[in-house]
Amino acid sequence: MTMPATQCLIRLHQEHHSLEDYQGGVPRWCSGCGDNAILAAIQRVCRDEDLRPEKTMFVSGIGCSSRLPHYMKTYGFHGIHGRAFPVAEGIKMARPDLHVFVNTGDGDCCSIGAAHWIHAIRYNMNMTVMLHDNHVYGLTKKQASPTSPLGLKSNTTPRGSQLAALNPLSVTLGVQNVSFVAQAVDWVPEVMYDIMSAAFRHRGFSFVRIIQRCPEFLPKMFEPWLHDPQKTLLLSHKDGLQISAGLSKTYRNQQEHDPSNIDRAREIASLEDPLPVGILYRNPQVPCYEDLRHPAQMRTPEFIRAGFEAELDKVTVWPDQDAQTQRAA
């Protein structure tokens, strides 16, 4: 069907953006940090989806990852530790017309912000979430995070961590109303871009865990995966990712996975070696909280004023009977 003439007129002079329109400054991350790859990919998504910078919002908590809004030339909210989700939900509720992105780290999301994370999945509000997972607290100079592997020696675990790592994918897939779960790695930028595009286009809470390198504190952590492509399992499907021929030459370990199959998604989520990369689960039918709570009546200033007046009238004491009678009339 052709586009209506009125829509053509509206779009006639729509601006087209370049990558520079989204680049907000020189990143202060360490060289070699995986955050750079995530930043580059999300800027490409913004450009290719032609998002208007003034209609785009990046929200973050605290941590290396959460510096990302500073490097975007869009609106941003560098929040407080673990509270990126409530802020993003409030923004989406008040301004559903904005494109909301959330950048959070493994400490910010999976530790202090875990309660907000669980309920954000349940709410399924339309936003794109990037969990920058480098398995360590980097900003505070190497402490173990919830996703740190068993035995990791850090400033808080000098004899090695004693708890098994939390798996953010399994947790997300276990929460009611989950609607989009994917995993990317910063060293395969082509797939990361495709996943982020799919996540943005999904209407609902799109959760993308991005495994990223921390060259400063865990320089050797992902070397085996970097040097052996067979240790990365690419998930492809006609309704998921389509792997390019060029990439297939390097990454031959591929598996077809239907993103609508949540049981299989849960099995894949628990894999550690090879590392699954792709869209694990997608269900566009899950309703978004902002749609469920969309008010039937528009909240115009007149409507709000009338509501206030009605509430205040309930507790108003009228000084004389005549005034009360007049009011009742």
């Binding site: 070699g32 750079n36 790859a37 930043l39 910063d186 060293w187 930028p189 082509e190 060259p215």
Partner: peptide, 12 residues
């Protein structure tokens, strides 16, 4: 280039 993860190592 297609595999570059934009980590800034070389540009630095």
């Amino acid at each position: 280039t297609a595999r570059c993860s934009s980590c800034n190592e070389c540009t630095l």
